[in-house]
Computed example of a mutant assay.
Amino acid sequence: MNTKRVVIGAVLVVWVIATVLAQHPDDNNSRVRRLARHLGSFWIPNWKFFAPNPGIDDYILYYRTGDSGSDTWNEWRRLFQVKEPQFWEMFYSPTSRRDKGVLDIVTTLEIMGDSDAFGAAREAYCNLLVDFVRVNMAPTGEPFFQAMVVRGAGHETSIPPAYEIVLDPRPVQFSEEVHRD
């Protein structure tokens, strides 16, 4: 038998076993996970994105502008309009990082729930979402805006959207006290 084939086969078997052990939630595999962190995900991939809570929904940001004092609001508007994907976006899509960031923030807010233990952290994540909407929304002459997160099923139109989070109205302008240069 060829020695080169045996070595390559042994390395492949060790790699597959290390990859499977690194995915397993059992604490007995902590050494393999430490090795994976040390070597990087190129050598031992991390496939935990698919379980236990995979990202199967799209979170879409909406906003509306108006005056919270008189309770007069305009219609809800989608923050980023849907556009037909380009062929090259299959290989490089700069907006996918933006969408992933929104997904991470909303998922974290869902995990926190309404628990008082996460009060400050929850407020920080909500402020992050609000500031993201404030910076990216269309210019308006209205003094206030309100943001909303809607869960959708992507291109699947037979599933109705679910209204996840409606944030409190905020001023359109950044507060000088909070945001200093």
Score class of each variant (00 low, 15 high):
104 D>G: 05
30 S>H: 12
143 P>K: 10
49 F>V: 06
60 I>C: 10
38 H>L: 07
176 E>S: 05
11 V>S: 12
85 P>H: 01
57 D>F: 12
55 G>S: 15
31 R>Q: 06
40 G>Y: 06
77 R>L: 09
36 A>Q: 11
55 G>Y: 14
109 L>K: 07
100 K>T: 11
18 A>P: 04
164 E>A: 12
76 W>F: 08
174 F>A: 06
64 R>A: 06
42 F>Q: 12
101 G>C: 04
44 I>S: 04
31 R>I: 02
12 L>W: 08
168 D>S: 08
60 I>P: 00
151 R>T: 13
139 P>W: 00
27 D>Q: 13
10 A>Y: 00
168 D>R: 11
85 P>E: 01
164 E>V: 15
103 L>I: 02
25 P>M: 03
128 L>P: 00
99 D>N: 14
10 A>N: 02
16 V>E: 00
91 F>P: 00
108 T>H: 14
63 Y>W: 01
161 P>C: 09
91 F>A: 00
160 P>Y: 10
168 D>I: 01
27 D>I: 01
78 R>G: 03
61 L>Q: 08
167 L>T: 04
86 Q>C: 01
136 N>E: 09
180 R>E: 15
47 W>T: 07
51 A>C: 10
83 K>S: 02
156 E>F: 15
123 E>Y: 02
35 L>Y: 11
52 P>G: 13
37 R>W: 09
53 N>S: 11
145 F>R: 03
140 T>P: 02
130 V>E: 15
29 N>W: 14
109 L>D: 06
3 T>S: 14
81 Q>M: 09
142 E>N: 09
169 P>K: 02
92 Y>P: 00
117 A>Q: 13
64 R>L: 06
109 L>C: 04
149 V>R: 02
126 C>S: 09
166 V>M: 07
88 W>C: 00
102 V>A: 06
126 C>N: 07
109 L>N: 03
34 R>I: 01
172 V>F: 03
142 E>S: 13
48 K>A: 05
117 A>H: 13
49 F>M: 05
15 W>A: 07
163 Y>L: 14
141 G>P: 04
128 L>E: 09
128 L>W: 13
38 H>K: 10
53 N>F: 14
159 I>P: 07
159 I>L: 14
165 I>R: 05
100 K>D: 09
25 P>F: 02
58 D>E: 15
163 Y>A: 12
118 F>D: 06
35 L>W: 14
116 D>F: 15
109 L>I: 08
74 N>S: 13
53 N>Y: 15
67 D>L: 05
6 V>W: 02
93 S>H: 11
72 T>R: 11
30 S>D: 12
92 Y>E: 00
44 I>H: 11
157 T>E: 15
8 I>T: 04
107 T>H: 13
173 Q>L: 08
31 R>H: 10
21 L>C: 15
119 G>E: 13
62 Y>P: 05
80 F>G: 12
161 P>F: 04
124 A>D: 08
8 I>Q: 04
88 W>A: 00
38 H>S: 10
24 H>I: 05
31 R>F: 06
20 V>T: 08
21 L>G: 06
154 G>Q: 13
175 S>L: 12
47 W>H: 07
104 D>M: 15
